[in-house]
């Protein structure tokens, strides 16, 4: 396959950035998208040019580090697929592929396609945990039965890989899907209920402070989420926050 890549180049956070065109030749359709980028980078290095910086790590779709906005969609055209699991057979010979970083005020560009997602960490630090010490002297694991249905729902919410595709897809750069997944996981489990109200207030507050936009319920986040986190979680968070706001003394 021969392709034309249009890639966002930005030499550091303060650079204005621009799109640059690169032809890539002899691409094997069995390559992953990132392997294609590797090939391009090898070529750039051999030509004495600066390779394209991008984030990636596990390359099996679970670490959440890869983050490319490909042909107008986060992680590219395939559903339920991270960039690292996207293969070149999803494209046609002769295609032009546009590659950009996640764009959001809360995710400043570090270089080229790599962005800083520390905002997500800070939201989690605001309350994404159960306040229990790690002594191991907790009660026996089976002393707290959890209805299978809730356990499964909590698990589904907990599978969020924190990649930020939801923010990238949302026309408002809203982080609601990400935040609601964590809020839901704990709200559904008895262990997390105790501090549920406090948690949702703190996490939403942090989310707002980070400069994410608002949720318009377009559903783009759910459609683009590589692990299929459901909008149901956003509704649950709306509920949790409403009840927390109504019941709080503030």
């Amino acid at each position: 396959m021969n392709l034309t890549l249009k890639v966002w180049r930005q030499n550091g956070p303060d650079d204005k950035g621009h799109m640059e065109i690169y032809p890539v030749k002899d691409i094997n359709p069995d390559m992953s998208f990132l392997e294609m980028m590797d090939v391009l980078n090898e070529e750039l290095i051999s030509e004495g040019k600066d390779p394209i910086a991008f984030d990636h790590d596990c390359r099996e779709g679970i670490c959440g580090m890869c983050s490319m906005f490909i042909n107008g969609e986060p992680h590219g055209p395939e559903r339920r697929t991270t960039t690292c699991q996207l293969h070149m057979r999803s494209f046609k010979d002769g295609d032009t592929i546009v590659v950009e970083p996640w764009r959001s005020a809360a995710f400043p560009v570090i270089k080229d396609l790599a962005v800083d997602r520390a905002a997500f960490d800070r939201i989690q630090q605001a309350g994404g945990y159960v306040s229990v010490n790690t002594s191991g002297n907790t009660i026996d694991a089976n002393a707290i039965p959890v209805p299978k249905q809730n356990a499964d729902k909590a698990f589904n919410a907990a599978t969020c890989i924190g990649c930020g595709a939801c923010v990238a897809a949302c026309k408002n750069s809203s982080a609601m899907l990400f935040v609601s997944a964590k809020v839901s996981q704990y709200a559904l489990l008895p262990q997390g209920k105790v501090e549920a109200k406090e948690r949702v207030r703190k996490m939403v507050n942090q989310m707002d402070l980070e400069g994410f936009g608002n949720c318009t319920n377009t559903g783009a986040c759910e459609a683009e989420c590589p692990v299929g986190i459901s909008l149901e979680n956003i509704a649950r968070m709306n509920r949790e926050y409403l009840s927390a706001s109504l019941s709080s003394a503030e």
């Binding site: 790690t134 009660i139 694991a141 356990a151 698990f155 996981q185 704990y186 489990l189």
Partner: peptide
């Protein structure tokens, strides 16, 4: 025990 107390959603 520890992980369950932390809200790890085991099967």
């Amino acid at each position: 025990d520890q992980c369950v107390a932390q809200g790890v959603p085991f099967a």
